[in-house]
Design a protein around this nucleic acid. Structure first.
Ligand SMILES: NC(=O)c1ccc[n+]([C@@H]2O[C@H](COP(=O)([O-])OP(=O)(O)OC[C@H]3O[C@@H](n4cnc5c(N)ncnc54)[C@H](O)[C@@H]3O)[C@@H](O)[C@H]2O)c1
Ligand SMILES: NC(=O)c1ccc[n+]([C@@H]2O[C@H](COP(=O)([O-])OP(=O)(O)OC[C@H]3O[C@@H](n4cnc5c(N)ncnc54)[C@H](O)[C@@H]3O)[C@@H](O)[C@H]2O)c1
Lengths: 213, 213
DNA sequence: GTTTTATCGAGAAAAAAGTATCGATATAAT
DNA sequence: ATTATATCGATACTTTTTTCTCGATAAAAC
């Protein structure tokens, strides 16, 4: 099977999961084929944009019909790397950390959080949703032994850089960071920030503009 | 004071919180002035881009010096609507809901989650981080009485549309949605999706491309 | 069987976002 | 005092992203 290593824009990459969520809903309803026109209407996008996004995944459609829901689902998942699970470690078993540890659907998104690490001795030793919380000191050896590629950072902002450094030192290839702090990483390592504050900024800015005309 | 009701791109809006996080760090360190060149270096952006983003907030700088950290912080906060707190209700006191209810820093970001609602009788009546969990049936009257503008949705995807409909019916003006479901809202209401899966998609796609060259 | 219609896919056009250039200016160095 | 330098802010330019147009095609309608 030809691997699609097409490089696409971040914008495209971020629309693909939206399509996937819709496709999953449709599949559950027994729908078999879907057109880009339909997908576009659902999100108020341009149909051509959806077509170009879909093109990146390598799936081809048929005129007048569109795309097979199952086929497109598969291609998007493959393209996003959601077909086989990536093991991950989580640093910071606090409120956000707990929520992530308990999120069953990550399985659908190719993410498998294997264990958590915390510097607080009171948290160490416990199990959260069946996942062990261990002391930070055990992390480096385990990253190497278990070939962990992804580190999830849910520590307070002022400790985020330290956590990231430790993870990268240990050999992690990608960081998923939830702390609102500007982080420095070496060349070659992937840093992705899950910044809720960015989303909130868009909301509150829009809201204030609507409320004060 | 002149209110800045400039409409800016979503991209700009999402970079502003980044600058703010940096400014807060600098302010804590006692730094008084900052140049766009410096900010740009920190995030690996173009200095001109930072200048344009900053321009949107209405803050003016001085040549050779840059911007006052305090002044810029203030203007960004004002522009984002983070200077005065917006009251919000949260629907779905599960794992993610709990994390949000316990997040102290929302205060800094102009968000004040007042109470939570859940349909599970076992959750109703409890207090989570000092915030009451109430039955959904009480929500509409309270939205009206307390003039709540923001509804936060942290229910499972299949119940998200119902939660959103109920909130909007009750009079909420803006929805912050965490469920991975395509939602329909009427004209005039603001919908902002905090989609962790989008961020994860970028990460896993990049990672698979790095791992399989 | 012919026409109509909905869709894809490719390429062109338009719009938006990002980047470079340059004069003005405020400070520091000579 | 003069020169050098770092920065802003305005404008011009470039690149990227989005949208439009159109021919090809597969199914449905007539
Ligand atoms: N809770 C939310 O809703 C929310 C929302 C947006 C962003 N965030 C961000 O996510 C991060 C975590 O937030 P939270 O609410 O879970 O905080 P929290 O205080 O509940 O949890 C932080 C955890 O990290 C641990 N920790 C601290 N320093 C550590 C270190 N150096 N190594 C390992 N563990 C360490 C603490 O012991 C604690 O268990 C913060 O950066 C926060 O800003 C949280
Ligand atoms: N936990 C995470 O890390 C995470 C990450 C990304 C997205 N999400 C999304 O956030 C949402 C919540 O996730 P979670 O992990 O907190 O789930 P959860 O199952 O822990 O919590 C859901 C809560 O919503 C309540 N609920 C269900 N239907 C309701 C309704 N109609 N009205 C009011 N309350 C209702 C349930 O009683 C429960 O308390 C989901 O849509 C999930 O996909 C969660």
């Amino acid at each position: 099977m030809a691997q699609h290593t097409v490089v696409v824009s971040r914008s495209t990459l971020k629309r693909l999961p939206l399509y996937l969520h819709l496709l999953e809903k449709l599949q559950a309803e027994g729908v078999e084929t879907i057109s880009c026109t339909y997908i576009a209407k659902e999100f108020d996008f341009d149909p051509t944009q959806v077509r170009k996004d879909v093109e990146a995944t390598g799936e081809v459609g048929t005129a007048r019909i569109g795309f097979r829901v199952a086929g497109l689902t598969d291609k998007i998942k493959e393209f996003l790397g959601w077909n086989n699970a990536h093991d991950a470690f989580l640093i910071g078993a606090g409120n956000m950390g707990k929520a992530l540890l308990g999120y069953k659907d990550f399985e659908k998104y190719g993410l498998n959080i294997v264990a958590a690490f915390d510097k607080d001795p009171k948290k160490v030793g416990a199990k959260i949703f069946g996942k062990e919380v261990m002391p930070l000191s055990k992390m480096p050896a385990l990253v190497k032994r278990m070939h962990i590629n992804i580190g999830i950072v849910t520590v307070p902002a002022e400790h985020a850089q330290a956590a990231v450094d430790a993870l990268i030192d240990a050999g992690v290839k990608a960081i998923w960071n939830f702390a609102p702090a500007p982080l420095k990483i070496p060349e070659g390592v992937i840093l992705e920030n899950a910044r809720l504050t960015q989303s909130l900024a868009v909301l509150t800015n829009n809201l204030t503009r609507v409320l004060k005309p």
